[in-house]
């Protein structure tokens, strides 16, 4: 545990834990809403914002944050207008964001060197402002997911039924998008474009596969992400690998191991539970008839 004696490793672990916890929860909802690409897209757009901020000599972190928020509102608006084409629009905005980021960054000498650090992250070089911003975004996210967990469950399941059940779907959906933009743009300078999407997508996709219930999916995703970040950081320290890439690789390995374990478990379960399953299948599974009161209706009302 000597690595925790270093100041920068402490901050890296703290930032990594914050991002892991909030991004994985966000990922469960994003994946189920079929918006997994959205986080990726927002991180690219945020990158363009950072580049523009550096060029205009504004605070790059702030401009990246603002641009990502604007992007999330834009995506939500596009999604509402063209429901079926949301993936295409996300891809288009993503290309726009990345290309303009690359062009803007080549213009400004100040940032040109750290372009790759924005892509692959610099979690061990996280500074104080970024850490505070991340903590604030994580806190807002935690409150959001905690207070709105029931409406979000209904919304994630199906928007139409959520709307007819009386939920303010538009506001919830917009709030969710804005929150996504916030978390992504706060996390992006710390862990990089690559790691933001892997932290959002990988733990959630494993959790959705293996979780027995929705609440369990959220907890599993958080655990997996936290474990992946800690293991990845430790590995990067021990074998002096780039931290972002080693975290992403660890998460990928966990995902593969999890899926493999699940498949093995199912096979094992089949062998053990074969008799029980059969008896379950034989249990009646139809809507029970209420009473004989209605039976006369089938016979034309004679028995009245």
């Amino acid at each position: 545990m000597e690595m925790l004696h270093y100041d920068f490793m402490q901050r890296a672990f703290f930032a990594g834990a914050l991002i892991a916890l909030i991004a994985s929860v966000l990922g469960v909802y994003l994946l189920l809403r079929r918006q997994a690409l959205m986080a990726d897209m927002l991180s690219h757009v945020s990158l363009a914002g950072i580049a523009a901020g550096a060029l205009l000599h504004w605070n790059p972190t702030a401009t990246g944050f603002a641009v990502a928020l604007a992007g999330s509102v834009a995506v939500e608006w596009v999604r509402r207008t063209y429901k079926t084409y949301s993936e295409i629009s996300i891809a288009i905005i993503m290309i726009g964001g990345l290309s303009s980021a690359a062009i803007l960054m080549s213009r400004s000498n100040a940032l040109n060197k750290s372009f790759s650090s924005y892509l692959f992250g610099s979690v061990v070089a996280v500074n104080r402002t970024e850490l505070i911003l991340m903590a604030a975004a994580a806190a807002v996210g935690a409150v959001f997911f905690l207070l709105l967990r029931r409406p979000l469950y209904q919304l994630t399941f199906d928007e139409d039924t959520a709307k007819t059940a009386g939920l303010p779907v538009k506001w919830l959906s917009m709030g969710f998008s804005v929150l996504t933009g916030m978390i992504v743009s706060a996390a992006m300078p710390i862990v990089g474009v690559l790691l933001v999407s892997s932290l959002i997508v990988l733990p959630a996709s494993l959790a959705i596969r293996i979780a027995p219930s929705f609440a369990a999916a959220v907890w599993i995703a958080m655990t997996v992400a936290l474990g992946g970040v800690f293991a990845g950081l430790t590995a990067s320290y021990a074998f002096s690998m780039p931290p972002g890439a080693s975290i992403a690789m660890t998460l990928l390995l966990i995902l593969l191991a999890g899926i493999g374990a699940q498949k093995a478990f199912v096979k094992l379960g089949k062998r053990i539970h074969r008799p029980r399953d059969r008896s379950e299948k034989e249990s009646p599974s139809r809507i029970p008839r209420l009473s004989n009161k209605y039976s006369y209706m089938q016979s034309g009302g004679e028995e009245k």
Binding site: Y153, F157, A165, A207, R209, P212, S213, F214, A217
Partner: peptide, 30 residues
Amino acid sequence: VVGYVPQQIAAFNSGFPSKVLEFVLSGRFA
């Protein structure tokens, strides 16, 4: 209070992780 059962629900195809009871209880959230 309006209860709506649509013809198709996309969430069923994407393997929405939820128990039956948990899902039915969500009707009470309204």
